[in-house]
Simulated scan of single mutants.
Amino acid sequence: MAAPPDNDVLWARALHVKHNGSPALTGVSLGVREGEILAVSGPRGCGKTTLLRCLSGQLLPQQGEVWFNSTPVHTMRPLVRERLRRDRFGWIDPEPHLVPELTAWENVALPLMLRGASHRAAKPVALEWLERLDIGACARKRPHALLQAERQRVAVARALVSTPSVLFADEPTAPLHRADRAHVLRTLTTAARSHGITVVLATHDAEVAALADRTVSLLDGRRVNTVHLPGSGDPARPKAGTTEAEGRAACSLSV
């Protein structure tokens, strides 16, 4: 078992995962550099969420290795992985999962208090992040009184409040309208760069992927590269006369 390169904060090798007997990841390998914003792109069902869950220690691959800062995540005991996720990682789901009994600022402050911060110390930090996301006025509201876009911004603030080493964002702007999506992404990427947070961002949206430093593409659970076909005019498009499915297949090779 070889350790990953020193400049990779996350490193995965030959990940294989099956769900109910169907392949979700097949031999996927990648490295993520410290402070990098990496987009994992591909159509729905291609394995993006499964890959993020493996990298974050939520899911153990049936085969393969996952390393964080040269420490093997795939051999950690469940309690150690849970502490790793609590202390070093942040996570944003496509849909916000907030604690209904807590106010917006209390939801945001929760990761800090789970790490031992006092109520008094956590509150101003949580309020600052709500202000950054333009929902400071919602601080005392509970989730049921918030709009969907507001709840998602609370979830983003909660993921950023503890300045995690790595932030995993699984389609983080899926429930948002275009204007809200742009603001949330701008806040997320600005915060990541200013605080040195590594971001692994799953998306099927090309505009979202364009904000990343680098993009890794998945198709049917495999990592793929785009091949420019001769005579196609636009090198990013499949050859004329092919169907969308044929063109997508023709433009992808496993690596």
Rank of each mutant, 00 (worst) to 15 (best):
A126H: 00
L211W: 01
S41D: 15
H19Q: 08
K141D: 02
W105F: 08
G64A: 09
T163P: 08
V80C: 04
E207H: 07
A137W: 10
V125K: 13
R142M: 02
V161M: 11
R86H: 15
V66M: 07
V255A: 10
V40R: 05
T26C: 15
V9P: 11
I197E: 11
A179C: 06
A240M: 02
W129V: 08
H228M: 02
H177I: 02
A209Y: 09
T189W: 05
H204K: 05
E244A: 12
L55S: 01
G231M: 14
V73M: 04
V224D: 00
L112P: 13
A109I: 13
L30E: 06
K141S: 03
F89W: 14
S118M: 08
S22Y: 06
V216H: 05
P235I: 07
R178I: 03
G35C: 15
A179H: 00
V154C: 00
E36R: 06
R237K: 14
L188P: 10
D180P: 05
G136H: 12
L112T: 13
P238Y: 12
G35Q: 14
P78C: 12
N69V: 12
W105M: 09
E34R: 14
F168M: 09
E244N: 09
L201P: 07
E101L: 14
D220T: 12
V125P: 12
P235R: 03
G233R: 03
R181H: 05
R33E: 11
T215Q: 08
R53N: 08
Q63A: 00
A169N: 04
P143V: 06
V32T: 07
I197D: 13
L51P: 06
E150I: 02
C138Y: 06
V208T: 00
D180E: 12
V216S: 10
A206N: 07
T103E: 02
K48S: 12
G31M: 00
